[in-house]
Amino acid sequence: MMKNRVDYQQELDQFREWLGYDFMSLALAESAEYHYVIKWKYATGNLNDCFKGIVLQSGRGIAGIVFKTGKPMIIENVAQHIDNELLFNYPIVRMEKLKSLVAVPLWNDNRVAGVLLGGFRNEQRVTIEMLHQLDELAHQGIGTLNGKELKLS
């Protein structure tokens, strides 16, 4: 487990260096005995550690939505996409003051096992190409996640 922790953090730091995001983080599903929660486990470029306490319900928040749908997500301008009064539903965006972001699912054995997020603290910094690039990266596997997506056809 200790080895994984180091791996994920190093990988994430490296990604940020390559891709130039202000902030990147990795959410993983944590399985407790009778609960199943999603948490932002690793981050790089973060303003503080507040995000660590956040437990996301499936379908809630950036990670919750990507986790549940298994679809990548792009928000070019947070102010336009999310009403200010609903911003509290997206703690990571609020706490890290993100203004544009992309988020992709991390697959493992045909299931979504986590979410990778890259964000900027100013608007209009993300493009569809960046979303594809991040998605491709996620499909190559991160840490112990093999990136194998479930294809229905």
């Binding site: 599903a29 399985s31 009778y34 609960h35 199943y36 319900q57 499936s58 379908g59 054995d109 299931r111």
Partner: peptide, 19 residues
């Protein structure tokens, strides 16, 4: 391995229902 996945899905579903 398959059972582990199913167990995870069901735990999540259980949690969703409780919430």
């Amino acid at each position: 391995q398959k059972m582990k996945h199913t167990e995870a899905s069901m735990t999540r579903l259980l949690d969703d229902i409780r919430n």
